[in-house]
Design a protein around this nucleic acid. Sequence first.
DNA 1: CGCGAAACCGAGTAGTTGCTCGGAAAAGTC
DNA 2: GACTTTTCCGAGCAACTACTCGGTTTCGCG
Lengths: 224, 224
Amino acid sequence: MTPSADPNLRRRPRQARAQERVERILDTAEQVFAEMGFGAATTNQIAQQAGTSIGSLYEFFPNKEALARALADRYIARIAPVYDTLLVDEPSLLGSDLITRIVESLDQYFREHPGAVPVLNGRLTSPELAAAGERLQSALVAGIDRLLAVRRPDVAAEHRVTVAAVIAEVTRSMLVMADQVPLSRRRVVVRETERMIIGYLTETIGDPPPSVASPRVKAPSKRS
Amino acid sequence: MTPSADPNLRRRPRQARAQERVERILDTAEQVFAEMGFGAATTNQIAQQAGTSIGSLYEFFPNKEALARALADRYIARIAPVYDTLLVDEPSLLGSDLITRIVESLDQYFREHPGAVPVLNGRLTSPELAAAGERLQSALVAGIDRLLAVRRPDVAAEHRVTVAAVIAEVTRSMLVMADQVPLSRRRVVVRETERMIIGYLTETIGDPPPSVASPRVKAPSKRS
DNA sequence: CGCGAAACCGAGTAGTTGCTCGGAAAAGTC
DNA sequence: GACTTTTCCGAGCAACTACTCGGTTTCGCG
């Protein structure tokens, strides 16, 4: 069985030892790309820092760009399930709770996968990685747009997509900021992000959907 | 008078011809750094694309990093007056008008100096340029914080600086987004940015709207 | 003009980079 | 064990990089 050959790999690692090595190379590449940018990073350094040899690196990866591509693919694959659960609608949730869920989940993901931040941030100067970041962001916009469409079918599509894009962008940039702030302030920043977006959403589109025949919803009294 | 020798220049250009050349080199470097990142950019390409020779480039700039440093300094110098007028308080202005002024002025600046966007964006992988971007952002945070302090001396300083940082970050990221969006939608994005920040500010710190009730912004053909 | 200073040039240099290749070691299979 | 396949290695190569240098052209000014 050939599980669809990866075009980013010159040869698929068959033994566990080699698979781990490939992963370790990717982990290191992620780190080095984030530190000095794609252009300035050297494959020799990546290999050495990954505790292997350039020979081994090029045994599996045909060239430097393939490294970036494989990295990008890995991000997409890893974050896909998060997006899937995130962007599935649950009618029992208020709009504001939806925002909270999105922001909190992404924040948690970034805490657990620090290397993903530069990708979302767009700080990695490589066409492949930049494209991956944009794909991720587009998926987020589309998902939020879908959620909005379900809740407020009366809002014009054009306006809706603008709102979705704004929400996605603020989410992204604020979470990146939260990631760079001292750990003790991280929660504060995340909460401010949620407050800001919820305020914007409410004012823009009108959070409580009175017209829709929605089953009653619990109203957690949270705000001031 | 000797206007304090520039440490980024190996020799100061004395003739107009040379000064223009230096500027052109900086303009090109800005463009090339933005396109491919500092690490991947080559000085030979910069020289060629600037319509000059590497010899001339190195006649004035001692090395590649100095190029980035000079570029950073030029940004700081160019944007300083904008910040100065922006962040000076005018008591006649409402808080919301202050926000509008800040966002509009920065947007105008970015429209007139497209090369500045990547710097603010943090997309330029060079310690010097990244530091310049951060300095700019810090200045913006400090300025907003000052404005807030004057208007709401009762708000705790710690909270105030958080709010200022949030406002500055959203301003930055949204203006970068506005810059990358089709020109026809740019105004829309800028306006949404203002609405969002004003809403956040009002809710957070309670902007006292003395006379007029808060203007219900843009509710196009939809009732709630 | 003339002449010194400033500006300009680009082939060349030392060093670095991405990447190859032949062979040694380890793992899998019988 | 013996034989095959996979994995690993790192010296070395062609290409490219940042940067130099000696020489030429242009400017400023009397």
